[in-house]
């Protein structure tokens, strides 16, 4: 433990600002991945254990598009759309066959997807680390806040994630499609009897969840090293986020993701050997005090 160092950082504006911004971008990536996970679970009732794969694919698709075109906008679109398309194919051909089946079967299908996709990435891109580098537009001097420095890209990432979260929330709560999707989560047979193609909608929702993970991967690409298997730690952390925030709650995912991000950033200073433990401790605490999560519906 390094509580003195932690106290010193919290007391120093520059260190505090730096750690908060680091925590926020970790949190924003987790928020995007976790809201996709939560959306899929909320509507389809399955846990997409392969969700980390789509984060990884988003990063690699973005990397490849950036290498090919030099455009970061195209890289983001490629990451989001690529992960979404693979997600729809995965749902149609594999996941949809194990709906309502044994949890172990679902786990097995997802685990197979993880192994296969990780290996495919290895074959196509190589097993070594890849760096995408900071896009031109963000290669500017960091913004100074209270003596701390925040890279321009961090601000962009936070804005993107919050914007996407807001659009998602509005889409689910205010649009007709969102209302249909919420109804689908509750009574799919009735939704079908009203003339709505529920299978198509399931595939669309699964794809949308994967788009969120892929977008996170693409946004992470300039600031993370890319490796096959990079999705695993993100998957575990987004599970923690979903548990803390409450399954199915987008605002809950946001709050929990920021909590986890800050825990990691400050934990790395105060408890360098126990950062992961802190996250699990936080999750345990929430589970004891509020089993349905911070903002989850209080049912059962």
């Amino acid at each position: 433990m390094n509580l003195d160092v932690l106290a010193g950082c919290v007391a120093t504006a520059s260190c505090f600002v730096t750690q908060v911004s680091t925590g926020l971008i970790v949190g924003m990536l987790l928020f995007l991945v976790a809201s996709g996970l939560s959306l899929i679970f909320g509507v389809l009732g399955v846990v997409n254990f392969a969700h980390g794969v789509f984060y990884m694919l988003g990063a690699y698709f973005a990397f490849a598009a950036y290498e090919a075109t030099g455009s970061f906008v195209l890289a983001l679109l490629a990451g989001a759309a690529g992960a979404g398309l693979v997600g729809i194919v995965f749902e149609r051909f594999f996941m949809s066959r194990v709906y309502g089946k044994d949890l172990l079967m679902q786990l097995l299908v997802c685990y197979a997807a993880i192994l296969i996709c990780d290996d495919l990435v290895k074959i196509v891109f190589g097993a070594d680390y890849k760096l995408m580098g900071m896009p031109e537009a963000f290669a500017t001097a960091p913004v100074e806040v209270l003596g701390g420095f925040i890279p321009g890209y961090y601000i962009f990432m936070v804005g993107m994630a919050l914007g996407i979260g807001a659009v998602l929330w509005l889409g689910i709560n205010r649009t007709r499609l969102g209302k249909i999707i919420r109804a689908l989560a509750i009574n799919p047979q009735m939704v079908g009897a009203l003339g709505i193609n529920t299978r198509l909608l399931y595939a669309g929702v699964f794809g949308m969840g994967c788009v969120l993970a892929g977008t996170a991967g693409a946004l992470a690409a300039p600031v993370r090293t890319l490796t096959p298997g990079m999705g695993l730690s993100v998957l575990i952390e987004s599970f923690i986020v979903t548990v803390i925030g409450g399954m199915g709650s987008i605002p809950g995912a946001l709050v929990a993701a920021i909590l986890i991000g800050l825990t990691r950033a400050f934990g790395a200073i105060g408890f360098p050997l126990f950062t992961d433990g802190l996250m699990f401790a936080l999750m345990g605490l929430v589970l004891i005090l509020r089993p349905s999560g911070l903002l989850g519906a209080r049912t059962a």
Partner: peptide, 22 residues
Amino acid sequence: PYLVARAGIGYVPEDRQVFPEH
């Protein structure tokens, strides 16, 4: 079933299946 509904059959099942949280 969804195609039958689109063809023009409006089926109201038993047990009043409203969407309770809508």
